[in-house]
Design a protein around this nucleic acid. Structure first.
Lengths: 263, 263
DNA sequence: ACCTGAACACCGTTCAAGT
DNA sequence: ACCTGAACACCGTTCAAGT
């Protein structure tokens, strides 16, 4: 749930909260497995500050611009100094993703009569969060955020799906599926929202794509030629809404006793 | 269609076939936009050979092991020599993805009575293709392959969806959605099929995840605690089948006049 | 005309040497 | 005890200099 798909990633976000149990991890082979550990006493440099700086860089210049050097530079140090607070770039990315997910707000309690609306609204909320943070969705993909805030999100979504009367196994699978859908969509959308591609250039590209389909040899690609227009017509918003609609209608249509054909 | 989601990527695969029109492109800012151009006369090194070598590396060691240097080395040259055949690593990745998609086979003609089965089977076919090629799905994500083989795939899928009686706009959106689902799933699955994570380690991780959920404070995370088992029980196969089932049922349930609420 | 070694400007990460 | 400059082993890409 909220797992950005079924993802069981190799590393997983450490919980900062006190009373939560230690997070399970897949072993890493490259020896970058140690944790930062000790609290940062009385220093200007803190985990918080590093995550802040990293997220700001992603917002302003995208994920590719986030390097240990750029983060360190924006904090007035060298890259090596970050390793006292963060065990690897991988861990830093997890912290940044967790921070972003923590921004998502859930209003109200799970309402049995409104579970579809509630799921739709939280999906849109998450999408908006990603839209605020450049192409962060790319880093988010395939991770299972298990930090406190992410768990709260999973808890809420699980509650909504259960309130909807879905059986437990379907609740679990549905949460993963919706998380994956939103993250994947957000990632793809970030590709054409890159600050160095103007809306005009994008429109031109779309038009070019339509003309490309339209000009294919009609004997070999009759359907693509005929559908050149609808294939390239939909905007981001409609694509997202369409997929969400399909997923939710499909979920509502899944029988209570669903199980895979070949176990 | 077959676009691995709604993806309109910044660069797009060049069509190798003769009679197809030139592919539309989004402008790139980093000046890496030139094409290889001239045919490789009588040389051992060819585009084909380079793509072969690159795909072999992905199969054997994963996408991260694919560097211009490793590819060149496996062909007995230096990285610089590849740039006579391929304008950038980005273009090489597109060629590799296209090659892999070309492996997917479609049996039979679109059959109006069997469109759901046909879509399900092609989705499984594509998933198997990705499973053969390490974590190639990662490189595939967010690209629109427009090469000849990919177009044939899109043509076929479009035909099946139309045969199913879906309206044109739904056909277009559905193709993107299914493509994105399969690619995203394949990518996530590749994360735990990494050759350096054994099945045993994975099972252990899953068990750890279950125990993690189960041991959360029950007052704050009642649903996660209660659903610890189902949340971590499903295998890859069931996850994939579940999502596919949801998508196809949802598609079948979309009204013919669907359009986004806020245009 | 074709090819490529060496270089450039980067990475993430480590560690000896400073304070 | 804490911090970090410099180095290591890599990247993708370029280009002058070879044949």
């Amino acid at each position: 749930m909220f797992q950005n798909g079924s993802g069981l990633s190799s590393t997983v976000l450490a919980v900062s909260a006190s009373e939560l149990p230690p997070v399970p991890r897949l072993p890493t082979r490259d020896g970058a497995g140690r944790r930062a550990g000790r609290p940062p006493r009385r220093r200007a440099l803190t985990r918080e500050a590093i995550v802040d700086a990293a997220l700001s860089i992603v917002d302003a210049e995208g994920l590719d611009a986030l390097t240990m050097r750029t983060v360190a530079h924006s904090l007035g140090t060298g890259a090596a100094s970050l390793y006292a607070y963060v065990s690897s770039k991988e861990e830093l990315l997890e912290l940044v993703v967790e921070r972003a997910i923590g921004e998502v707000r859930f209003e109200g309690e799970p309402d049995p009569g409104r579970w579809l609306e509630q799921m739709k609204s939280v999906a849109q909320e998450i999408r908006r969060m990603y839209a605020r943070h450049g192409d962060l969705a790319r880093a988010s993909f395939g991770r299972i955020p298990l930090g406190e805030r992410a768990l709260e999100a999973s808890e809420w979504m699980t509650g909504v799906l259960r309130a909807g009367g879905l059986p437990d196994q379907v609740v679990a699978l549905a949460g993963d599926l919706l998380g994956m859908y939103v993250t994947a969509t957000a990632y793809e959308e970030s590709l054409y929202t890159r600050e160095n591609v103007t809306a005009d250039e994008f429109a031109q590209f779309t038009a070019g794509l339509r003309d490309y389909f339209a000009s294919l040899p009609a004997d070999r690609f009759p359907n693509l030629v005929e559908l050149a227009e609808p294939l390239t017509a939909s905007g981001r918003e409609s694509r997202f809404d369409f997929g969400l609609e399909v997923l939710l209608r499909g979920l509502a249509a899944i029988p209570a006793d669903w199980s895979p054909q070949q176990p």
